[in-house]
């Protein structure tokens, strides 16, 4: 059984195996991207006030601060008595070291969990990747069947990668300016959310772009580092085989190909 499995795997060409492995990356990423184990601020923010510096802003206790940025908030269950919030005395509180806290101005309007999360509950790595890869396979199929023009096929994906790139760039610059200038606006989480979603489009689009222009990519490496592709190596080996098999000169077609 094991031998059969190994034999079956060995029969798959290396190129296909590599493509299969690469195609599984978004799946693994999406599986890894789980909300289940979020306990503290991943950016290390302390007492992050509304609307929060990142799209994961959550305020279940309604104190106007992100629960994840409150070191004990996620671990303890605060009890409210007469408008005052008290924490479990057995847990270690880091409140003395927190500098941003402005308890008196805690907003009561931020009690909706996930209200600062932009347009959705999380980032859509898997759906976007599947849609884009599916779309690319579809247009590639149409192109290979002659239904879609090569130019159109390329233009569609070039436009998509451009849109992703411009969107990511603009939102990124906006975020840098907001952080550098210390500006906090209600739209900040939405900008971060858009930045991430467009970046996913850009990354998948770029990988498709590289696949479409694979020949040029190989040529670039050849020009810069003098690398030779596998195909060239195989052709040379073929010529050597022909030479050693008795012929003095390789066939004209092979010579032409090498040139």
């Amino acid at each position: 059984m094991k031998k059969r499995l190994i034999g079956a795997l060995a029969s798959i060409p290396v190129k296909k195996r590599l493509i299969g492995a690469l195609a599984s990356i978004p799946v693994v990423a999406a599986l890894a991207a789980s909300d289940s184990c979020a306990l503290s601020c991943p950016y290390g923010n302390v007492n992050d006030p509304y609307p929060g510096l990142c799209p994961r802003y959550t305020d279940l206790n309604g104190d106007g601060l992100c629960d994840l940025s409150q070191i004990t908030a996620a671990a303890t269950a605060p009890t409210s008595t007469g408008g005052q919030t008290t924490q479990d005395p057995n847990t270690v509180s880091d409140a003395g070291n927190q500098t941003h806290y402005d308890g008196g101005n805690a907003s009561a309007t931020t009690t909706d969990p996930g209200s600062g999360q932009g347009f959705g509950d999380g980032y859509h790595i898997l759906p976007i990747s599947i849609i884009l890869i599916g779309g690319y396979l579809f247009t590639h199929f149409l192109f290979s069947k002659g239904i879609l023009n090569r130019q159109k096929h390329r233009r569609i994906w070039n436009l998509l990668v451009t849109a992703g790139y411009v969107g990511t760039g603009v939102t990124g610059i906006l975020l840098i300016l907001m952080i550098n200038l210390g500006v906090r606006i209600v739209l900040s989480p939405s900008v971060i959310y858009l930045h991430v979603e467009l970046a996913i489009v850009m990354v998948i689009g770029t990988l498709i772009h590289i696949h479409i222009h694979w020949k040029s990519v190989k040529k670039n490496f050849k020009v810069l580092f003098g690398f030779k592709s596998h195909e060239d190596g195989d052709k040379k080996e073929d010529v050597n085989k022909v030479k050693t098999s008795g012929r003095e000169k390789p066939p004209v077609s092979l010579n032409k190909r090498l040139q």
């Binding site: 990423a29 890894a32 991207a33 789980s34 909300d35 184990c37 979020a38 306990l39 503290s40 991943p42 950016y43 990142c54 994961r56 994840l68 999380g122 980032y123 790595i125 991430v196």
Partner: peptide, 8 residues
Amino acid sequence: LILLDMGI
């Protein structure tokens, strides 16, 4: 993104 989503 992975670190953010996993809360690490």
